Amino acid sequence: MTVSDVLSFAAPSCVADEGWCRTIYGWTHNDWLASSAGWLIAKPITIILILIGAFLVRLVCRRLIDRLTRASGGGIPTLLRPLRERAPQALGTMLSERRAQRAQTIGSVFNSIVSFIVFGLAFVMILGELGLNLGPILASAGIVGVAIGFGAQNLVKDFLSGVFMMLEDQYGVGDVVDVGEASGAVEAVGLRITTLRDVNGTVWYVRNGEILRVGNSSQGFAVAVVDVPIGYGADVGQASEILGRVTTEATEAAPLADDVIEPPEVLGVERVTAAEGITMRLTVKVRPGRQWAVQRTLRAKVMEAFEDAGIRGPMTRGFPPSEP
């Protein structure tokens, strides 16, 4: 019997195969270390390589997503170019902030999805390297996921509503919206919460999943509606002529000229009531978000013109009209 035959008889069976067992046995001539080489060296190294690969893939994907969500020179981020944008150009400097927040929010969703997929696959591969049966584990994970999803259905609802709201650009920072329970200017938009500030300065935090309908006053164009009351004895024809003339002159001059899109339209008598008298109405198509300023300016000019023309307002209850 040769020396090699003696060694092969004394060595563990795995020495006959190429691998860590043979290498470790050649270094140490220890049966236990050689037999356990797979668990002590091979599997830890494989697991470390899997983790390193997962971190590298995640890093590359995050860098790519960050580049897609970054706007250069105040332009539109690459990630938003395929998506429809409803933001009014009148927002000016706030428009870039709106785009940046929208891109960052969508980018954070993509980053979370990438992290979940990459680390999920790495976790499954590590379990496979450890020799665990993945069937019962995946079944248990599915049951736990259903239970968590059922318990956190409101959170999931808020999250999904926020995602679709971002993709569709229903509203954004700077828009004036009415979401039912609250209305005001949008200060921040998140995947779960939308922050509004109303005209009184109150900040409202509205869950996206609870928003059933949104009225946006800052998309496309707006209409300034001006209602002016006059008394029963006033000449309606004269009042209509003054409305058209004064509003046309006002909208063609500064500062309203930049806000008005189309010439004003006098609609005439809107309603007749005992308390308010005759209400005349006119409308003007203006830039989004500027309807309230235009309304206030036109109302003041019309009331001044009516006063100069001797057209009285409705009689106040309890007070007789003043003598001419």
Results as ranks from 00 to 15, higher is better:
P264M: 02
L267G: 02
V223N: 11
I211V: 14
I211Q: 07
D258S: 12
R207A: 07
E181H: 13
G184R: 04
D175T: 07
G268L: 04
G231D: 10
G172A: 04
T194Q: 12
V186Q: 11
Q219D: 01
A234V: 11
V226I: 15
G190P: 06
V177H: 13
R271K: 13
E265Y: 09
V269P: 09
S240A: 08
R192Q: 13
D178M: 02
E270V: 00
A257K: 15
V179C: 07
G231S: 09
D175Q: 09
V214N: 13
T248A: 11
E249V: 03
L191T: 02
Y232M: 08
T195P: 00
V189S: 10
E181W: 08
V179P: 09
A257S: 15
T251S: 11
A250D: 04
W204R: 14
P255M: 13
Y205R: 15
A234F: 02
E262C: 00
Q238P: 04
A188N: 13
V203T: 15
G180D: 03
N200Q: 13
E270K: 13
D259R: 12
G268R: 09
V269Q: 03
G180T: 07
S218F: 10
T195I: 12
R197H: 06
T251L: 13
D198W: 01
G180W: 03
V189H: 08
G215L: 06
D227I: 00
T251V: 13
A222K: 00
I230G: 00
V228G: 02
G184T: 08
T247P: 08
I211S: 09
V214L: 12
Q219A: 08
Y171Q: 00
V214D: 03
V189W: 05
S217F: 11
A254L: 09
G174F: 06
V246T: 15
V203D: 03
T251A: 06
A239Y: 01
A222T: 01
V266K: 02
T195Q: 14
E241V: 02
S240K: 09
L243M: 15
T247W: 12
L196K: 07
E262M: 10
V199Y: 00
V269R: 07
A234K: 01
E249G: 03
D258F: 05
G220C: 05
V225M: 12
D178K: 01
D178I: 05
A254S: 14
T194L: 10
I230R: 09
V269H: 09
L212C: 05
E241S: 03
V236P: 07
T194S: 14
P264T: 03
V179M: 04
D259L: 14
G237V: 05
